[in-house]
């Protein structure tokens, strides 16, 4: 009966994952390998294709006037600089949306909403960037990443070429993702791993750690069983997945550093209020 309960939990989290996240790993890998009936993604590999593809990027928060400013005869470098900033803002918009998706997913983890509300906030605040990095991995390969719900493929070289510190944000995530993708987790495994990350009892400032650890322990058992059944030939997969949590903490530290640098150097940039809440006093 206990194993049955753990299987029910795995199924529940997988269903919630499918319900809350618009682009699954299965779909992303199909797009990346060209095995989908949908149109191939629009490829952004330089400033010209970014300018052309900008209309496809999910940017519903940008006011129209701002978009029109590009045609006002600015010199080339200013145009480019504005294009980069606009692109960065649309990334922020999508990230804020993803934060709300992750929050809904967290709320669906059995027992999560019964935790102290302040602890729920702390778990989301400290786990969010880690979760988003894991969710980004299936969209990436060594050459680039899908964005805008899989409609656009942006090359790694192009992202790297953006002016500092924009060009530095993604490179460590690519390095991580290429290795993480080698574990070949599927969407059902990912759902469990995300729940494990969210339920980390060692986040700074938690008021009541015990109930969080109890919940995490249960999801860990469920993940261990699920990985054994889902990947019978992959040795030590459970341990290998858990080891990735150490890399995630380093990635977050780097991310915070770059964002800090951006705050200092990019006077025109204002961070989305929800992302500000998450980044503020984070380590």
């Amino acid at each position: 009966p206990e194993a049955a309960d753990l299987r029910v939990l795995a199924k529940h989290l997988y269903e919630s994952y499918l319900k809350n996240f618009p682009l699954t790993k299965a779909k992303a890998r199909a797009i990346l390998s060209g095995k989908t009936s949908d149109n191939a993604p629009f490829v952004i590999h330089d400033m010209k294709s970014l300018a052309e593809g900008e209309q496809f990027i999910n940017c519903r928060q940008l006011p129209r006037q701002e978009q029109r400013r590009t045609s006002m005869g600015l010199i080339q470098s200013e145009l480019q600089s504005e294009l980069e900033l606009r692109f960065f803002r649309s990334c922020q918009s999508r990230s804020a949306e993803a934060v709300s998706e992750v929050t809904e997913f967290a709320k669906s983890i059995p027992g999560f909403v019964n935790l102290d509300l302040n602890d729920q906030v702390t778990l989301l605040k400290y786990g969010m960037i880690e979760v988003l990095i894991i969710m980004m991995s299936p969209l990436m390969n060594k050459d680039g990443t899908l964005i805008s719900y899989g409609q656009i493929f942006m090359t790694r070289e192009f992202i790297k070429s953006l002016r500092k510190p924009f060009g530095e944000i993604m490179e460590p995530k690519f390095e991580f993702s290429v290795k993480f993708n080698m574990l070949e987790l599927d969407d059902s495994d990912m759902a469990l791993f995300l729940a494990v990350i969210i339920l980390s009892g060692d986040r700074p400032g938690l008021l009541n750690v015990k109930p969080i650890e109890v919940l995490q322990e249960n999801v860990l058992h469920s993940m261990e069983l699920h990985l054994k059944m889902n990947h019978p030939d992959s040795l030590q997969l459970f341990a290998k997945v858990l080891q990735k949590m150490t890399d995630l903490r380093q990635l977050v530290a780097h991310h915070v550093q770059v964002m800090q640098l951006m705050k200092e150097t990019e006077i025109d940039m204002c961070l989305h209020p929800l992302l500000q809440e998450i980044m503020k006093d984070l380590y």
Binding site: V99, S100, N118
Partner: peptide, 20 residues
């Protein structure tokens, strides 16, 4: 609580807000 206003709101709303 004020510091994490939107997160609080997201946690307490039954559906994701559309104002993101």
């Amino acid at each position: 609580k004020e510091k994490h206003k939107i997160l609080h709101r997201l946690l307490q709303n039954s559906t994701s807000p559309v104002d993101l």
